[in-house]
Design a protein around this nucleic acid. Structure first.
Length: 819
RNA sequence: GCGGAUGUGGCGGAACUGGCAGACGCGCUGGACUUAGGAUCCAGUGGGUUAAACCAUGUGGGUUCGACUCCCACCAUCCGCACCA
């Protein structure tokens, strides 16, 4: 028997899969459709084994579903716009397009070497005009619906990346990419009105019953809805009415002052003419300049300034001072807060610092509070006091009554506020899809007509480390004609956030070649939602939320008929090395190239899957790869084993055991894949089966198995491991005289009646402690079991002299004797 | 601070609805075959003991005939959010 020459065997099958189009589908025939999708990657230099996990998992699922008879669509593409390529261009002068396309070529080779198979005819590359034309089209559709708008706002600015960032891209006040502290800058920017869909994005999470709870919770928290009341406070000696949002309207009678955010639009009007105006505005601009990190820090002491103004609390007619403070955020609620120091910790600290009054309005009748003795705010429930007609009510009940009263008297209105902000999509960078808008001196701002798409990115631009987008200086690009009056006009030179590109790519895979539409509605409706989406949990909020939003918009506009894009989501864990995420800078990257050369792709795949449950992080061990390689060799040598096997087995019982184990293994592997993708235990089950086959070969122990039985077992084993180790499986399948690919064969079935043996070994416990085992016929009744225990000398010694209090007998499973 | 997850041998990890803790693999120990092995095969491998007893699933309690699994309290680590009114 020849050695297992993985290099040539793997090359042979990879070529054959490509030549025969293993995963080619006809989208016009959606019967038994199964859309299996892995998140498409950003084309960075080279993949490491950590990346591989994602693609290998997806490949296993695709191959398994194919063997289950489904019509599997599994495409791949590249999220090819983005900052790194542009930054590299500034450094080394290579055009982002060139480096990106090179990286894509390298990655495709790596994926193929792993034996990860896709329908490459459907490849989408988001940086190419045939794709971004339709990204721009989506922008126009949102603009048409009033869901894309431009406004001047304080935005997150990363001084290192020289661009704005979406809220979702700011992590603890720093840029998610480079960790630089994010600044606030007032700029005119393009937004998508995702907040219009906040409630729906939140409510529909309930529909996603095949998504991980963790991801759903993260999205819920990010959208962050809270219910409360918007209350109007008229400013004394002014026409201005300030509205504040509160979730604790029950504490309204304890409101002793009001606070505005420094960014509040009425600040300037309110302090105009005040003798302290300059001092106040100096404070305001100081707060506005502060970085988000400093401002968000809970540790830092709250700072504020009195405006000299007062507002009226219309519930009791009281005049209360109006302050400006750094702890109030413009981006949440209304940017104005009613302060109740007795019942809100932040207000309590602020009041203490600036000597503002504290008034208790919710009390525990058993332990009344005295404002002077309080060391912290009391945020607990209780009964209202000092609250006019509402005194004496439990506070939860009072909330409703007061809200009703306010709505009747037009003092306030019930309201829901979200943490979710509109999605800031403009980027001051070159390597992205240009925003298809034109500014004409005469006609104003206009969208580029659909027929003029794509707005092409100019190729000949200079990449200079000036911190400004090269597009801005590309005269030929910026200068254009007004689509309405044909007069001189200039183009928008900001590009779109790359998350816009990736928020619809799963639709394009269905109709990758269409030139007159982004996708075909019928086909997309037939194939979507994606049956299985696989990717990293780092996209729990960004990409997965944006994609849900865009899908809902397209659904509302009638372009698609479904409003959630991903039916089932699987988020795999990271592979770490030496306790840290693999990264070039840490120097702990494990490249698949050398491993595949030394052991073959099947071994690398097998180890990657065997390392642990795929949803959890796992530590990579080069040694572990040896174990996988050993299994591959043992699997291969089954060929030789069969050749040398006798025609007839020599021990009927061993043969029965092996047959039973085979059926059990089919059941186990099938259930592990169908369930939570527990490939690690599926593989260990296959190993156990192979181990049992080998145990029949050794001189001692069991007798030898007959040729026919071994053939049956080997055949099933090869089928079971085919999704994990496809190359060796194909080769062995072919050696079994099969003409078609193993992935066209059906997944093996097991026989329920073959799973259980006639006799069972039952553990015998005394007071819950294991003392021995008995072997009885399956189904033996309690008396029979008792008799077996009594007659076993090893076990019955434990009975001597002790009265038995109770027998606990679980049929075929366990005996416990209480003495 | 809030929310979520996870704690099992030297290591990665198994364990059904509460029922033989440590499957499978790595590593390690001994042996066989070898000129040689980082190849292959065989045996062993949680601690403890000549052998038992006994001790072991983060810690401390509880429920139960019986707890990795259920309940209560705590500790540690990781992740997400974080002045959200």
């Amino acid at each position: 028997m020849r050695d297992y020459d993985f290099t040539s065997i793997e090359a042979k099958w990879q070529k054959r899969w490509r030549d025969t189009g293993l995963f080619k589908v006809d989208v016009k025939d959606p019967r038994n459709k199964y859309y299996c999708l892995m998140m498409f990657p950003y084309p960075s230099a080279a993949l490491h084994v950590g990346h591989g996990r994602n693609y290998i998992i997806g490949d296993v699922v695709a191959r398994y579903k194919k063997m289950k008879g489904l019509n599997v669509l599994t495409p791949m593409g590249f999220d090819a716009f983005g900052l790194p390529a542009e930054n590299a261009a500034i450094k080394n002068g290579i055009h982002p397009r060139t480096s990106t396309l090179n990286n894509i070529a390298t990655m495709k080779e790596q994926l193929k070497a792993w034996g990860v198979e896709y329908d490459w005819d459907r490849q989408v590359t988001s940086c190419l005009p045939d794709y971004y034309k339709w990204t721009q089209w989506i922008f126009l559709k949102l603009y048409e619906k009033g869901l894309a708008y431009k406004k001047k706002a304080f935005v997150n600015w990363c001084p290192s990346c020289n661009t704005v960032l979406a809220n979702e891209q700011v992590v603890s006040g720093a840029c998610e990419r480079c960790d630089t502290a994010v600044e606030q800058k007032e700029l005119e920017q393009w937004f998508f009105k995702i907040t219009d869909h906040a409630q729906r994005l939140l409510d529909d999470i309930e529909k996603l019953d095949e998504w991980p709870e963790k991801v759903k919770t993260m999205q819920k928290n990010w959208i962050g809805s809270s219910e409360g009341v918007n209350i109007d406070f008229p400013v004394v000696d002014s026409d201005i009415i300030l509205t504040c949002f509160t979730t604790r309207v029950d504490t309204i009678f304890g409101c002793t002052y009001m606070v505005l955010a420094a960014e509040h639009p009425r600040v300037e009007d309110l302090v105009a003419g005040s003798p302290d105006r300059d001092r106040i505005m100096a404070f305001v601009s100081q707060v506005r300049r502060g970085s988000r990190i400093e401002r968000a820090s809970t540790e830092s002491e709250k700072k504020g300034i009195f405006t000299g103004r007062y507002v009226i609390n219309r519930m009791n007619g009281r005049k209360i001072p109006l302050w400006i403070a750094d702890y109030v955020l413009m981006e949440y609620g209304t940017g104005a807060v009613m302060a109740v120091p007795a019942h809100d910790q932040r207000d309590f600290l602020f009041a203490g610092k600036y000597g503002l009054p504290i008034e208790v309005v919710i009390d525990d009748p058993k332990e009344p509070l005295t404002p002077g003795n309080m060391t912290e705010a009391c945020e607990a429930d209780g009964v209202l006091v000092n609250s006019g007609p509402f005194s004496g009510l439990p506070n939860r009940e009072a909330m409703e009554k007061i809200a009703d009263h306010m709505e009747r008297e037009n003092i306030g209105r019930r309201a829901v506020h979200f943490k979710l902000r509109d999605w800031l999509i403009s980027r001051q960078r070159y390597w992205g899809a240009p925003i298809p808008m034109v500014y004409c001196d005469k006609c104003g701002m206009l969208p580029v007509p659909e027929k003029d798409l794509p707005v092409l990115l100019p190729e000949n631009v200079e990449f200079r480390p000036t911190g400004e987008s090269p597009l801005k200086f590309a005269e030929d690009f910026v200068r254009t004609k007004c689509p309405k009056c044909s007069g001189p006009a200039r183009r928008e030179f900001d590009t779109m956030d790359t998350f816009v590109d990736s928020s619809w790519y799963f639709l394009r895979f269905i109709s990758p070649g269409l030139t007159d539409r982004p996708f075909d509605k019928t086909d997309v409706d037939n194939w979507l939602p994606v049956d299985q989406y696989i990717g990293g949990v780092e996209h729990a909020i960004l990409h997965l939320l944006y994609s849900r939003f865009i899908t809902k918009v397209l659904c509302d506009m009638g372009f698609v008929s479904f409003d959630e894009p991903f039916k089932r989501l699987f988020t795999q864990g990271m592979i770490v090395k030496d306790g840290a995420k693999m990264s070039k800078s840490k120097g702990n990257v494990v490249s698949p190239d050398g491993l595949i050369a030394d052991y073959g792709a099947d071994t690398v795949r097998l180890y990657t899957l065997f390392i642990g449950p795929p949803e959890k992080d796992a530590e990579w061990s080069d040694k572990g790869v040896d174990g996988a390689f050993r299994f591959i060799k043992r699997l291969w040598n089954l060929n030789e084993l069969i050749e040398n096997a006798p025609e007839k087995g020599s021990d009927a019982k061993s043969s029965e055991d092996l047959t039973r184990k085979m059926h059990q293994t089919v059941k186990k592997v099938t259930e592990d894949i169908d369930g939570e993708f527990h490939f690690n235990t599926a593989i260990s089950a296959a190993m156990e089966l192979v181990n049992l086959v080998y145990s029949g070969i050794s001189e001692k122990g069991r007798g030898c198995f007959g040729k026919d039985l071994l053939k049956t077992v080997a055949r099933n084993t090869v089928l079971l491991v085919a999704p994990f180790v496809p190359h060796i499986a194909e080769e062995m399948w072919e050696m079994m005289n099969e003409k078609e690919s193993i992935f066209k064969a059906s997944w093996p079935a097991y026989d329920k009646d073959m799973l259980l043996a006639d006799t069972v070994e039952i553990p015998v416990q005394f007071n819950g402690k294991l003392r021995g085992k008995i072997e009885v016929k399956r189904g033996t009744d309690d008396d029979g079991v008792k008799a077996a225990v009594m007659s076993d000398p090893q076990i019955s010694v434990h009975l001597s002299g002790k009265p038995v209090r109770k027998w606990i007998i679980l049929k075929d499973r366990l005996v416990n004797i209480v003495v």
